[in-house]
Amino acid sequence: MAVEEILERLTRGVRDMDEELAAEAAQDALANQMPALTAINDGLVRGMNEAGRLYETQEYFVPELLLCSDAMYAGLGILSPHIQRAEEESRAKVVIGVMQGDTHDIGKNLVKLMLEVDGFEVFDLGRDVTPADFVAKVKETGAELLGMSTLMSTTMDAMGVAIRMLQQEGLREQTTVMIGGGPISQAFADLIGADGYAENATGAVREARRLLASRGAAVR
């Protein structure tokens, strides 16, 4: 089977929310000795990027993105055990999670997925994460980026707490902090001294790239 055709099916499987097609095409990629990383980046990731564009133009909404990400994970589940470590370039590390007191994680999961497909190494702390746990994970992993999310106005102030704790630990200079979620705005990010804010998942990836590049950090 032609390489291009397999990649196109991987892309289409993700973009068109077709979990079976994505999984089937992933098997075909392996059967045709396609490097797993090629299948992921030029197939699945391309599909997720196309889904992201459809979301930005309001053709897709959250239900569609959830199903695209299901298809993406179906393909990734098959392909990722076959990634050869040598193929994998060194990647920027991100610690991500939903703030303590909040369990809304649809948005955080979308950002996580978008960051992963864009090549970041993501450490996901899940939901209801304390500021101390965010900071401890940054310290442990040496992550360049910390991403905190909340949908609730009641928990947003804890983001400022986490930033102050980073300072106390002497980690603030080396860590780029991004925040997002329903009640969050650029003004709030400025208020608590976060480096970046994005309105949605695709914007978050662009902002992460921009911030890291402006810091001169090694991105891939």
Partner: peptide, 11 residues
Amino acid sequence: GTPQFLRDLRK
């Protein structure tokens, strides 16, 4: 559960 219900709209 919201994420599941949103998927259900299509599936």
